[in-house]
């Protein structure tokens, strides 16, 4: 974390700005409530009682892209849906991250055909890919933690 000094009972903590902001970003990252297909059901399971994503400060899913930091592309993205996904991404305020959840979002999985976008990275930049069809809730949680690690390493110069 980089806490360097704790000055007695004054209650002052010093740290690097980068660390504090990145810590804040990881601890309250709100995902967008946006399910596409099968993976959305596992995303619901991750959010619910047994797995409980609120342990990561991510229980608050916002239906509006303007209030969310993280887009979890949960499912197959069809060519009809692709412009919608891109528009949702454009509507999200910076800083924003994208998780491609599952095989379909990562590379269209078992469907190599006319209807699907062959991986959502064709239309939006992806930070973390999660394998599985659908990934288990544990895999999604692992994806969250991987993204958190990534965000914690972000530098002041690259902040958006």
């Amino acid at each position: 974390m980089g806490l360097e000094q704790k000055a007695g009972d004054l209650g002052v903590v010093t740290a690097r700005l980068e660390d504090v902001v990145n810590w804040g970003r990881t601890s309250a990252m709100w995902p967008m409530l946006f399910g596409l297909a099968c993976c959305a059901i596992e995303m619901i399971a991750t959010q619910s009682s047994n797995y409980d994503a609120s342990r990561f400060g991510m229980e608050l899913m916002r239906p509006s892209p303007r209030q969310s930091d993280l887009m979890i592309v949960a499912g197959r993205v069809t060519r009809k849906m692709a412009p919608v996904v891109r528009r949702l991404y454009d509507q999200m305020p910076e800083p924003k991250w994208v998780i491609a959840m599952g095989d379909c979002a990562s590379c269209s999985g078992v469907f190599n055909n006319y209807a699907l976008v062959q991986g959502v990275d064709e239309i939006v930049p992806v930070d973390v890919y999660i394998a599985g069809c659908p990934p288990r809730p544990e895999a999604l949680l692992n994806g969250f933690m991987t993204l958190h690690e990534k965000v914690k390493k972000e530098k002041l110069a690259t902040w958006s």
Binding site: A37, C38, R76, Y114
Partner: peptide, 30 residues
């Protein structure tokens, strides 16, 4: 409708009867 059209029926025509089975899982995912 059509925002989730995956072409499952068409894909099944290109697979053997056993392999086409895995496509059906992903149709009605509940």
């Amino acid at each position: 409708i059509g925002f989730l059209h995956t072409g499952i029926e068409k894909n099944m025509e290109y697979k053997s009867y056993l392999k086409a089975l895995v496509m059906t899982d992903r149709m009605d995912y509940l």
